[in-house]
């Protein structure tokens, strides 16, 4: 059975199905992270005292990680643009860089977590660290999810380019929408957890 609307747009939505599907998924993700941001507000406004994040967390390292993730967003969109221009070799390069950036982000995050544990700072230490580890941990899980999908599209999944180039380009676009969302969440996590 052939899957409908993988390339051509559905008449009612004006979109191919996977694109509408990923946006529905991202809407549910907004609510997931929204619930955690809401919890952060509740915990912080209700607390008698709140730790100074800048004294506990490593701001230069987190700033570097923000740059890495922003960089990965631009390499991701460049990989999609390369396919649109018919340059599969460039796609491989840009997607490879996206994967490297994601790995770099995870390494930096691991260094950060390791440093906290080394100083006996755990999620159970206080409410700030509990919400910090929950939110950054959930975000890191999303980065790992993106890494797996992007790794597949860079490696075995790229075979589709030869037979169905438009469908493959759409797959990369959908993976890109997810990846940009992961970047978007970090853009708000960074100041709220590290700088305020």
């Amino acid at each position: 059975m052939e899957i409908p609307y993988t390339v051509e747009a559905r008449p009612d939505t004006g979109l191919y199905n996977a694109k509408f599907g990923i946006w529905l998924f991202l809407a549910s993700e907004v609510m997931l992270f929204g619930a955690l941001f809401s919890s952060l507000i509740l915990l912080r406004t209700g607390a008698e005292s709140w730790p100074n994040a800048q004294e506990i967390l490593n701001i230069p390292l987190a700033t570097l990680n923000t740059m890495v993730l922003i960089g990965s967003s631009v390499t991701m969109v460049m990989s999609w643009a390369s396919l649109k221009l018919g340059r599969f070799d460039r796609y491989r390069l840009w997607m490879g860089l996206t994967i490297l950036c994601a790995l770099g982000f995870m390494v930096i995050k691991a260094i950060e977590y390791n440093s906290k544990f080394g100083h006996h700072l755990y999620p159970s230490t206080n409410n700030f660290l509990a919400i910090y580890f929950t939110m950054t941990g959930l975000h890191a899980l999303h980065v790992i999810g993106g890494l797996i999908v992007n790794g597949y599209l860079w490696g075995p999944g790229a075979k589709m380019w030869k037979k169905e180039p438009e469908r493959f380009t759409n797959r990369v676009e959908v993976a890109g929408l997810y990846w940009h969302f992961v970047d978007l969440v970090w853009i708000f996590l960074f100041p709220t957890l590290y700088l305020l």
């Binding site: 609510m31 809401s38 919890s39 507000i41 509740l42 915990l43 406004t45 607390a47 409410n127």
Partner: peptide, 15 residues
């Protein structure tokens, strides 16, 4: 979702 906790705090029932 963002406004909900504000209401909770206003009622003095925050954690």
């Amino acid at each position: 979702l963002m406004i909900l906790p504000s209401g909770t705090v206003a009622n003095g029932t925050a954690i």
